[in-house]
Design a binder for these strands. Structure first.
Lengths: 199, 199
DNA sequence: CGAGTGATTGACTTAGATCAATGACCGTGG
DNA sequence: CCACGGTCATTGATCTAAGTCAATCACTCG
């Protein structure tokens, strides 16, 4: 998932960083696409504006994430990118990236593998959103993300972050976790959750 | 999105079709991965089973969709595939596919482009699920999927299908559409929706 | 013609969103 | 070293939009 893992050194070398003010536009739909972006810090949203001026958010990207992958294969952007916060982004120039993909099948393969993995996780997350009950969503999250022992999950972020990921308010998640713990279904210790009893 | 569009003729020629009974297992986690599957008809679900036997659905794939893309880059499967209905799947053998990707950068590029596009649409769909209100979800869907004129959307499937896509019950969607039409926000004619007035 | 499915609307219930408040922690500047 | 502002964690009370159950009508297909 991390851009550093699959990019070739030459492309990494060609990267350009850019600072953004809140509300600043990084690129606009129709503009010539420059390459792939990675967020160093802050948040950027990709939006499509309808003729009435209302914006529909296509994605919200945060530190560590990449966006505009598809623009690599298209001459122009298909949406606007606007910084939501003060932010720093890193641009991996399109030409260098494409050259690499053409030249080295191993890099192309790594790139495709990264995308395939993303597709997989995204589909799983989407599937999870189809689950109505908060408790079942948590269960889904736990069984999908359980470690090797199949029983423990260690949260990478805060509980609030998890709530956002699950598509719940943090209050709803706190309550759900509390109830699951009270019922003996899980046990919590800091950032790790142990699945105690399977329902 | 359609497998036929980017696969090389040689791989397409090497494809093997297989029929499945409802409940039949196509592959299991840990098994050697054979390649990429495309669904010809029916529905297949990818599931992960926890040690208590409960299954968590990672994906549900229907006719026309592909699955197990990521397994191309992994020696084994990471989940089980079980047919939900009577189904027919087409297997594009891994070896042939990988050979092609290695040999022809254009194919590798097309493959990566397809995946990048999928990542994009998936992220957009996920973003839509973050919207609470049914009406706003519909609005998001409409503005994102509006045709060239930015005002009309033609549904590819039934309204029920759209409801599933939006993560709503069909009843909720019918009501929302009815109210939006009553308010003059949209106009409907069969499978096409015209955005009449922007809110 | 009857079975099956989509489209649509009504009535009722509920889980989760909202609004609100509190305590624990943490870094920071004086 | 400590007070202060900020964020996370947590719980209570309330409200409402969407889910659930149910019924009807239109259509299509064999």
């Amino acid at each position: 998932m991390n851009a550093r893992d699959w990019l070739s050194p030459s492309v990494r070398g060609a990267a350009v960083e850019k600072g953004l003010q809140p509300g600043q536009t990084l690129f606009r739909a129709g503009g010539k696409s420059n390459g792939l972006y990675e967020i160093v810090s802050g948040t950027v949203r990709l939006v499509r504006i309808d003729r009435s001026g209302r914006e529909a958010v296509l994605q919200t990207a945060s530190a560590g994430e990449t966006f505009a992958e598809a623009s690599l294969f298209s001459p122009t952007y298909h949406c606007d990118a606007v910084s939501s916060t003060e932010a720093v982004v890193r641009l991996y120039p399109k030409a260098a990236l494409l050259t690499d993909l053409q030249r080295d099948p191993a890099i192309a393969k790594a790139f495709a593998a990264m995308l395939a993995r993303q597709v997989m996780t995204l589909r799983t997350r989407l599937e999870r959103r189809n689950i109505q009950s908060a408790r079942d969503r948590v269960r889904h999250f736990l069984t999908v993300n359980a470690g090797a022992d199949g029983r423990t999950v260690t949260l990478s972020g805060t509980v609030k972050d998890l709530a956002a990921d699950l598509g719940l308010t943090h209050e709803a998640l706190y309550r759900t976790l509390a109830r699951m713990e009270a019922d003996g279904e899980i046990a919590r210790a800091g950032k790790t959750i142990r699945i105690a009893r399977a329902t």
